[in-house]
Amino acid sequence: MNETSGIPEIVKISYKTGDYVGEAFERDDRRVLVKVLAVLQHPTQGDLHSSYDPDAAMFHERRALSYTEKVWVPIQTVQPYTGAIPDYRESLQTALGIEMERIDRLKRWSERSLENLESLRKDYGM
Rank of each mutant, 00 (worst) to 15 (best):
Q79C: 06
D29F: 07
D87G: 03
M58D: 15
G97F: 04
L33A: 06
I103G: 00
G97W: 02
E115K: 13
M1E: 06
N2F: 10
L48P: 01
R102L: 07
G83H: 05
E26L: 08
T4A: 15
F25Q: 01
A24T: 01
H60A: 11
A84S: 14
P8T: 09
W72H: 05
I13C: 08
L92F: 09
A24S: 12
R102F: 07
P54C: 03
K12A: 12
E23P: 00
A38E: 03
L120S: 06
V39D: 04
I10E: 04
R27E: 08
R108Y: 07
E26V: 00
E23L: 09
Y88R: 01
Y124H: 04
R27K: 12
H49N: 14
M1Y: 06
A84D: 15
E90M: 10
R102Y: 04
I7W: 02
D29M: 06
D123T: 12
E101H: 11
E99S: 13
G6A: 11
T82C: 08
S50N: 14
Y15H: 15
E101Q: 15
K122M: 10
Q45E: 11
D19C: 10
P80S: 10
R108F: 05
K35I: 00
S5F: 09
S66L: 14
Y67V: 00
A38M: 04
A24P: 01
Y81K: 03
V36Y: 02
V32L: 03
S91I: 04
D29Y: 06
L106M: 12
Q79A: 13
D47Y: 10
D28P: 06
T68A: 08
G97L: 06
D53N: 15
S91Y: 03
E23Y: 02
L106G: 01
I103R: 10
P54M: 04
R105Q: 12
K70E: 15
L33D: 02
L96I: 08
D47W: 08
L48K: 02
S113Y: 11
E3A: 15
R102S: 11
V32M: 04
R112W: 09
A24D: 04
L92R: 05
P86N: 06
V21T: 08
R63W: 06
N2A: 11
Y52F: 13
Y20M: 10
Q41F: 01
I10M: 13
P80C: 07
S119A: 14
R108P: 02
D123R: 14
E111I: 10
